[in-house]
């Protein structure tokens, strides 16, 4: 069974000399839910652009479900549905026309296109808007419209470039649920996102790109195992003038009633509570300072940059 995506030594140099990809190699297996992460300008969108034929590669090999894009891009395109970062539909066209036209570009007969359009528009809560010009939709609806458009030919691989950017929490959760559902039905999904919580919740595997190179490619579980330190925030019942000292832990006071304590992997939280209790400090709530994956992401990106002499 061929991989959903097989990228070998992919490079891209833009006309202005900017090297966006620098020998990127990456494999995404069929059925995977894969997160492609990286800071702005790392090469994520360029990679997606090459996969979807919007960007010409400079060098390297790309196979999509076994089809080489150099020799059979037309066939490879049939396997892919793309949800881009920016809205890229005609704002004057009606919602349903956008979907049915897209089906037509994949050669789907009109009757089937109408059937599927109804199915997906209903599924993503846009059926009532089908006869309205797309410019009248809210930002979240426009994002969902692009997902319906990408799914209309029922692709084996769905690529989503920051699909939940600017989407409210409730809608984001419903989109996560929908994506999980179609992944369980067999669709391979590649997702780029800046919400690392999103990658942690949805994806099985993750690739981190920086400066056009893959700096990490592993499962989310393995990645989280690399986490060596986590910072917890403690909200105190009463203000303190001086932060208490706790042996073996770094304690910082962010304001009079809030402490931040860094905890290394394997260290116990009980020790912190015991010592705080002994010192008469009462804790009313505790939370992790930031997303765990976010900390790892920052450290991986920083170490890859340090390895390159701090290039950004």
């Amino acid at each position: 069974m061929p991989a959903a995506i097989e990228i070998k030594s992919l490079s891209k140099v833009y006309g202005n000399g900017f090297k966006a990809l620098n020998g990127l190699s990456l494999t995404v297996e069929q059925g995977d839910f894969y997160a492609l992460l990286g800071p702005n300008g790392a090469g994520k969108s360029t990679t997606i652009g090459i996969l979807s034929s919007l960007v010409k590669k400079t060098d390297g090999k790309v196979r999509i479900f076994g089809c080489d894009i150099d020799t059979d891009f037309s066939k490879a395109k049939e396997f892919i549905g793309v949800v881009p970062q920016e809205f890229n539909f005609n704002m004057f066209e009606k919602v349903e026309d956008i979907i049915i036209n897209q089906a037509g570009y994949y050669g789907l007969p009109r009757a089937i296109a109408k059937e599927r359009s109804e199915k997906y528009l209903k599924k993503l809560g846009l059926w009532d808007k089908r006869a309205e010009p797309s410019r009248g939709l809210s930002g979240g609806m426009k994002r969902r419209l692009m997902i319906v458009r990408a799914l209309i030919h029922e692709p084996k691989l769905l690529i989503l470039d920051e699909p939940t950017a600017g989407v409210d929490i409730e809608l984001r959760r419903s989109m996560w649920q929908f994506l999980t559902e179609i992944n369980e039905q067999g669709t391979t999904i590649i997702l780029t996102t800046h919400y690392l919580e999103e990658a942690e919740s949805l994806c099985r595997n993750v690739g981190i790109i920086n400066n056009g190179e893959l700096v990490e490619n592993t499962s989310i579980k393995n990645l989280l195992k690399q986490l060596t330190k986590e910072t917890f925030v403690f909200d105190l019942a009463a203000p303190l003038d001086v932060p208490p000292t706790i042996d073996g832990y770094t304690v910082e006071k962010t304001d009079n009633a809030t402490l931040e304590i860094a905890v290394d992997k394997g260290q116990s939280l009980n020790v912190i509570f015991d010592q705080l209790t002994q010192k008469g400090v009462s804790v009313i709530s505790m939370r992790s300072k930031s997303n765990r994956l976010e900390e790892l992401f920052v450290s991986l990106v920083e170490s890859s940059q340090a390895g390159k002499g701090g290039a950004s």
């Binding site: 979807s52 919007l54 395109k77 881009p84 809205f87 890229n88 005609n90 036209n101 570009y105």
Partner: peptide, 18 residues
């Protein structure tokens, strides 16, 4: 040109339409 300007031309570019 409007399709290029609005980027809706990408709908065709990503499709297998020759």
């Amino acid at each position: 040109f409007s399709a290029k300007f609005s980027k809706s031309i990408e709908e065709l570019q990503v499709s297998p339409t020759p």
